[in-house]
């Protein structure tokens, strides 16, 4: 049982902030790290696995900082997104090398066990260069599992894996979570995360946008009013019509033109807005969300 703790972790490159003040605690069970491409998921996993120094804050595994502590790898397994370039080794040799580097008492047995877990015993005698994407993914997983780590970090493990192998991989992750391991995997596809993890962490533009149980986050999102700016050829009349709509909770005229609208039920609002404007003979000039960070991203994740 291990816990990975991030405390106010930031990472910047020059002027660009890749990870911005993230605090989270990743405990036993499966955690999904969700976010669109470029949100900082890989950076975050690099920070968690000791392959990137935080610019500020600390990353600790059971109290030990992971940066520059090679001993954490006794308890930590990493499956990076990068391909294995050791194409000239056989799958078995590669996993065995990993076992030996961990200084395991019986690397041969550990290798066979890990290959069995990922269902790669049969192709293990072939060179990695000849493997399909899914097989490479599983060999990478075997190499990360060979020392029976209590923490497993996976960067986009389902990328490019065919549906059948994806199911297999998901079942494997679930089993490991059930065994009490701390498993964290990243993905930009909500459906994947939903199928495997209950606990999710959402990162958007390097910020920790949401954290918790998936359904609960979704509920919180829909309950929160969303802000829009609407403008028409007659803003005041538009405002009057909008406040009559049950989906709208607040309306304000903006000094520089347009109407700020707080919408509680986005679905109903989206249906009613065109109807209302047409009934009133108004010309709609602009509709734009003002608070586009989390909602739009999340709805993109949910619906996309």
């Amino acid at each position: 049982m291990s816990t990975l703790v991030l405390d106010q972790v930031s990472r910047w490159y020059g002027n660009v902030v890749a990870v911005n003040g993230i605090s989270m605690s990743v405990g036993p069970g499966i955690t999904g790290l969700l976010g669109p491409n470029g949100a900082g998921k890989t950076t975050l996993i690099a920070l968690m696995s000791g392959f990137l120094a935080p610019s500020a804050g600390t990353v600790t595994l059971d109290g030990t900082p992971v940066w520059r502590t090679t001993d954490v790898y006794r308890h930590l397994g990493l499956v990076p997104e990068r391909e294995v370039s050791f194409g000239y080794l056989t799958g078995r040799r590669f996993v065995l090398a990993n076992a030996e580097l961990h200084g395991l008492p019986d690397p041969g047995a550990a290798t066979e066990r890990a290959l069995e877990v990922v269902d790669m015993v049969e192709p293990a005698a072939r060179r990695i260069g000849t493997y399909s994407k899914g097989m490479r993914q599983r060999v990478k997983l075997a190499s990360a599992l060979v020392h029976d780590p209590s923490v497993l970090l996976l960067d986009e493990p389902f990328n490019g894996v065919d549906p059948r192998q994806r199911l297999h991989l998901m079942a494997l992750l679930r089993r490991m979570g059930a065994e009490g391991r701390t498993v964290l995997f990243s993905s930009h596809i909500l459906e994947e995360v939903e199928q495997v993890a209950r606990q999710i962490e959402v990162v958007v533009s390097g910020r920790h946008a949401a954290s918790g149980e998936f359904g609960e986050i979704r509920r919180l999102m829909t309950d929160r009013p969303v802000q829009y700016v609407v403008s028409a050829d007659d803003d005041r009349r538009l405002a009057a019509c909008l406040i009559a709509e049950p989906s709208v909770v607040a309306v304000a005229l903006r000094p520089d033109g347009g109407v700020s609208v707080s919408v509680a039920d986005f679905g109903a609002f989206a249906l009613r807005l065109p109807a209302v404007t047409r009934e009133q003979g108004l010309r709609l000039l602009e509709l734009a969300p003002t608070d586009d960070s989390l909602e739009s991203v999340f709805s993109y994740l949910v619906e996309g």
């Binding site: 696995s49 000791g50 392959f51 090679t70 001993d71 954490v72 790898y73 006794r74 930590l76 397994g77 990493l78 990076p80 990068r82 391909e83 294995v84 370039s85 050791f86 590669f94 990993n98 580097l101 961990h102 200084g103 990478k140 190499s143 990360a144």
Partner: peptide, 13 residues
């Protein structure tokens, strides 16, 4: 190509 992480993610100095 970054695949050295496989060697570095080990309890070896």
């Amino acid at each position: 190509d970054g695949s050295i992480v496989y060697l570095l993610a080990k309890p070896v100095s």
